[in-house]
Every structure is written in C-alpha cells, then in structure tokens.
C-alpha cells in the first residue's frame, strides 16, 4: 500500500479492497496527547466517521462509499475518490466545485448532519462533482449553531486559502447552498455573523480577574 496523504490526524493509504481501489484511513496516536484521551478520541471518531458517512450517502451527499471498519486499528476502508482537494485547485477551476460543495453541504445539513471540519481541504473535486470527506468531527444535530459553525469554518478556510478572491468564492459557496436550503440560508448566515463576533475579542472578556506574579 502506498501512503498518499498525511492529514492532521490520519494517514491515508491507497490500496485494494476485494479487488477494487480503496483508501485506508488510519488514525494515528499522538504522543503529546494523554494516552487515555488519545484512545477515547480515536475510537470515538472512527466510529462517528463510519456512522455519519452512511447517513450522508443516504441524504444524497456525494461521500465515498464505506467498505469496512477496523476499530482495533482505528481504520476505515473506503472508496477512492480521484481528484484534488478544493484547496489545491486553480482559481479558474475552483468556482464550479465550490458551488457544488455549497449544494452538498446544504443536503448534508438538511439531513441533520453537521460536519465539524468543513473546509476546502475536506472536499475533493472529482469528475462527478464535489465529494465531502473526513467526517471524524461530525455528528447529528438540527441546532442552527452546529450548522452555522460548519459554514463559518468553510468561509474562513476560503478566506485563508484564497484571500485575494475570497469574497466572490464565498458568495458562490453560499449561492450553491441556497439552491438547496432556500430561505433557511438567511437564518444560518445571521448566526454565522454572531459566531464570528463571539469568538472575537469582546470587551467584557477583558474584564476578567488579574493574575499576580
């Protein structure tokens, strides 16, 4: 098997499963992490990713098909999707895929699924369209907060990866989203603005205890 990518938390190998090309996603232990926390997280996320990938496919979101789960090795075996993550595309190719990523995200949210790490890195541009991957931080919820957090992370990833054209790319993402989510998009966008203000420096937060040397 060939190592094709090293994500933030997993190693991705390209191999075969029952005769077809397959991706092996293996979560690796982190030495900096407390060992108990490490095991708990790797197990939880492998399970969560498997569960949510199934549901996501059921909602009609382009998601790699899941072939096999090996919990002991924190490994998922799934369909290989050929293509680059959107973060690596040239601006000219980007927009159509970003619009599609918007549609896929809205479909996912309509199924009460939030992704938890929705960024340009976790969407693959394939011949068929935009595929959403990397569901380790996802979950089920219909809370507008969880959904808006997804949109917030996507918009911010656009800003940090394509700063010079970010306004138009964000607009295209949101218009794709709106094609599916319709008028609900307004409420979500309002919440995104709130989240952005909240994480940001708020005056009251300074009004905190002082510390003494």
């Amino acid at each position: 098997m060939e190592l094709i990518a090293k994500g933030a938390e997993a190693e991705i190998y390209l191999g075969e499963f029952l005769g077809v090309k397959a991706v092996y996603k293996r979560r690796i232990s982190k030495r900096y992490r407390n060992p108990l926390i490490d095991r708990r997280i790797n197990l939880e996320r492998t399970l969560k990713e498997a569960k949510v990938m199934f549901s996501s496919i059921r909602e009609g979101v382009r998601t790699p098909a899941l072939y096999y789960v090996n919990l002991r090795e924190y490994t998922l075996i799934m369909e290989y999707v050929e293509g680059l993550p959107l973060s690596k595309l040239t601006p000219s190719l980007l927009l159509d895929y970003v619009r599609d990523a918007g549609r896929m995200s809205a479909l996912m949210h309509r199924g009460n699924i939030y992704h938890g790490d929705l960024t340009l890195n976790n969407v693959i541009a394939s011949k068929e369209g935009a595929f959403i991957i990397d569901f380790g931080l996802s979950g089920f919820s219909n809370d507008v907060e969880d959904i808006a957090t997804d949109i917030h992370t996507m918009l911010r990833s656009i800003e940090s990866i394509f700063p010079s054209i970010s306004e138009s790319v964000k607009d295209v993402f949101l218009s794709g989203y709106k094609e599916v989510a319709g008028s609900e998009t307004e409420d979500i966008v309002t919440r995104v603005k709130e989240i952005r203000l909240r994480g940001r420096y708020v005056e009251e937060r300074r009004n905190k205890p002082h510390n003494v040397e």
């Binding site: 933030a8 938390e9 982190k30 900096y32 992490r33 973060s87 890195n121 940090s160």
Partner: peptide, 10 residues
C-alpha cells in the same frame, strides 16, 4: 495542540 496540528498540516 490538536487544533494547532491541523493548522500546521493546512
């Protein structure tokens, strides 16, 4: 540290 590692990889 995990969030930082993600940012490093990004």
């Amino acid at each position: 540290i995990e969030a930082s590692e993600r940012a490093l990889s990004l």
